[in-house]
Design a binder for these strands. Structure first.
Lengths: 209, 209
DNA sequence: AACAAAATTACCCAAATGGGTCATGGCGAT
DNA sequence: ATCGCCATGACCCATTTGGGTAATTTTGTT
């Protein structure tokens, strides 16, 4: 039944690839591809009316790129799943894509059968991506390097992240404000910073806390 | 050939599940399970000698839990891939596990065939996890809510994250320090904070920048 | 036993920060 | 045209912060 089919839209500037994907999708039972676009701008105008279930988005588009288009599309169509397509396996734009709201990340050379499996998975609430990309994403949660801070210093830094000042940190740790000052000075030296904001920023970025 | 087999260790306190998994793994061509442990403490003593390729780690262990054990194990054996096992599909500990260094996250009821596929994938450099978990992980990259800040305020906040002060922010944006002060005051009001550290902390946490 | 690192506390002082209040001009929406 | 938001700028003042220097005690490791 066409009514219950999964509707897929394609945004891809290469006419050959676009046509090829359209044929693969339309030829798959349970899927329909009614709308294809060759650039981000026309997709942003057309798509809000059609509310597709899935969008296959080329990352490299002429004019507005696929990541910026994803950012705009997710706020226009929060229920539409967007899957990025890229040529490079180890593309650095994977994190930018996920931050922009993409649900998956595939390479263009993915064979038709696997592409359809990925679309199926995306529609079922998954996040299809190649194993290498998945590992990269998972690794991003780990601390990048061994923390140079002592346990106590880490405790202090965690409190600074909550916006506490000398006085309240001191109270929380049952020490004097002078001690807190000493710890903070030591933290600054080790992290090579000289303000709280920078220390907090680095702590969160490098997952020291 | 046993020498080139993928060596899997199991850390699981339930003797039945442990034995079952051991049988499944040993019965799979290309895999061997030489070492099993019923708690984190004995695993941490035993494993460094054997350096398995993969570890199946139960999250809920008596004594030290699986996440803490993962943290210690990844620093002892950085080349060993650790895959977490849990009963709950939507366990909140997935992020803690990944931060601790886990490479995958499976539920215990995963059928043997899929379990072995996941182990294969982990060993090939992937990050096996259920589609629901994958989506959860991917979603964590998105900003949680619409930013209340204006464009200019966001610019200022980004500079504060780099540790800049009134003077340097003012220079970077070609405005007076008083204007920067005004922007910062406005940021504080909107974010309901009253120090830089807290503003920066919230900005990075909520992905406002 | 000796040494290094960490935790603790103290004091001085200059600079940075945060709060309060006010004012002007531009711009979009009602 | 009026209201609200935004960006810009200014001034005062109390508090907080960061840098310098120094000392004691605990703890862990040779």
């Amino acid at each position: 039944m066409s009514m219950s089919n999964i509707h897929v839209a394609i945004i891809e500037d290469d006419p050959e690839i676009r046509k090829l994907m359209e044929i693969v999708i339309d030829g798959s039972p349970g899927f329909s591809c009614f709308h294809t676009y060759e650039d981000a701008e026309s997709a942003l105008i057309g798509l809000p009316r059609y509310k597709p279930h899935l969008v296959l988005m080329d990352i490299h588009l002429p004019g507005m790129n696929g990541i910026e288009c994803t950012r705009k599309l997710t706020s226009l169509l929060p229920d539409t799943q967007i899957i990025m397509l890229t040529i490079q396996e180890d593309d650095d734009s994977v994190f930018d894509s996920l931050c922009a709201g993409a649900s998956g990340y595939l390479i263009k050379s993915t064979p038709p059968a696997q592409l359809m499996e990925a679309l199926e998975e995306a529609h079922r609430g998954g996040a299809p991506m190649s194993p290498q990309i998945a590992r990269k994403v998972v690794r991003s949660f780990r601390p990048k390097s061994q923390s140079p801070l002592s346990e106590r210093e880490t405790e202090v830094l965690a409190l600074l992240c909550k916006g506490e000042n000398y006085r309240s940190v001191a109270d929380a740790l049952f020490v004097s404000t002078n001690t807190v000052k000493a710890h903070i000075k030591s933290i600054y030296q080790k992290l090579q910073v000289n303000t709280r904001a920078e220390a907090v920023s680095q702590a969160l970025r490098d997952k020291l806390i």
